[in-house]
Write a protein that binds this DNA or RNA. Structure first.
Lengths: 229, 229
DNA sequence: CGTTCCGGCTAACGAGTGTTAGCCGGACGG
DNA sequence: CCGTCCGGCTAACACTCGTTAGCCGGAACG
């Protein structure tokens, strides 16, 4: 049913906003955290209708103030995008690094970074969607910086696939294509995943991790018999 | 090297424009085909910088005329998008139908529609990229129509996966996820494929078709022995 | 040779939008 | 009770863009 289009429901938040949660929420929303609320609203709009299509007035509407009033809390629309995208890529890299640091054989590590990849794209589909679709709307110093982070993130997949192929754990014809295929199927999740549904992100992640290893020709849990087809 | 971002080089054309090629090209470009040339220019710009970011003046520049002059050949910017997206989805469905009509067992048919899917996304990556990223910029009667076509296209994958699972040719936990994974890894191709490289689209398509069947747990050419690994 | 019309061009309109300027009420510290 | 400053608001500026209006040269055709 959720045909591949822009994300359309649910709730997520930007890392920087989610970090500081004190407790007060109902009584008029103290004073702090306005910045975080604005980023949340912007994120949701950027994800559902796109950065260029989103107007400052719309962002303001979401938190009950007028467009120009936003400038009391943020410097510009562009800055919001930067904050969202940088936060997203940094969080993604952090999780990937943790998954790799946990050790294990090639196959385990690949399963783990694939699962992390997919789970993030399901749980934080707004950030993920924006992170992948709005890169060209970043102005130039930041655009290249984010692109570098992305390249780093992607290269971890390729290196791992390559390592597995050299060890003959994986039997694939091209490291690059295989790693792109794994990355892209995970990215796709952020476009159709429905948080209201009955599917838990970690369940989806486990399934996709199995897709990945099967795709690489390492279907069975035991790595003892490589005999690559 | 081609990090997942907007497509950035090469040449393709919209179906409607590619159809009528007479022969004359160098000598001043007769009179006809102006419409097709405009659509080509628009397509390239929509794909590389996005529909909203593209201005009529830029499209005009590509063919050496001013923005307002475009209106002697097209009705509106929106109409160009509609023409591009409708042409793309119809062509994709046409190819998919042909692949299915060619018959064969479930596994063969799945390999074939996957290969068609991937090959189109490599050969016509501009149309494909626009087709997947600019849906929300379509105005309403058309948006739903295109979305219906897409749902139809996607459901063919899911039905085939389901058929294979029921026949126990495929061993997958979820038809839906598996078909989405296959679709998404193909869609991703349109974002990074480089036509200037040494990789032929059909070669890529064959590799991805194998990824798909492996992912579904039907790794070997012979359907007799399922034994994974 | 005249007319018609195709396909350019410039000027201009009108709507939309990010951002700035400047005002003002009210909470809070002294 | 007074001043300060936070955080709203409206008005307005400065663009950008899609699109329309109207002009005009020149090719094609009778």
């Amino acid at each position: 049913m959720p045909t591949r289009e822009r994300p359309s429901g649910g709730r997520t938040h930007v890392p920087s906003a989610a970090a500081r949660r004190d407790g007060s929420d109902a009584p008029g929303e103290r004073a702090a955290d306005r910045h975080g609320a604005i980023l949340d609203a912007a994120l949701e709009l950027f994800a559902t209708i796109g950065y260029r299509a989103t107007t400052m007035a719309q962002i303001g509407d979401r938190i009950g103030i007028r467009g120009p009033s936003l400038y009391k809390h943020v410097h510009s629309k562009q800055e919001m995008l930067v904050e969202i995208m940088a936060g997203m890529m940094e969080e993604l890299l952090r999780r990937q690094r943790a998954a790799l640091d946990a050790g294990g054989d090639v196959r385990e590590r690949l399963e783990r970074i694939t699962a992390v990849h997919v789970q993030y794209h399901a749980e934080h589909r707004y950030e993920a969607f924006v992170g992948h679709h709005e890169i060209d709307n970043l102005e130039e110093p930041e655009r290249s910086r984010i692109l570098d982070l992305r390249r780093e993130y992607e290269s971890r997949f390729r290196e791992l696939v390559q390592e597995g192929r050299e060890l003959e754990v994986f039997g694939t014809s091209s490291d690059r294509w295989a790693s792109y295929a794994i990355l892209d199927m995970g990215i796709g999740v952020s476009a159709w995943y429905n948080p209201g549904g009955s599917v838990a992100p970690d369940e989806l992640a486990a399934t996709y991790a199995e897709f990945a290893v099967r795709m690489l020709g390492a279907g069975e849990p035991t790595a003892t018999g490589p005999r690559g087809a």
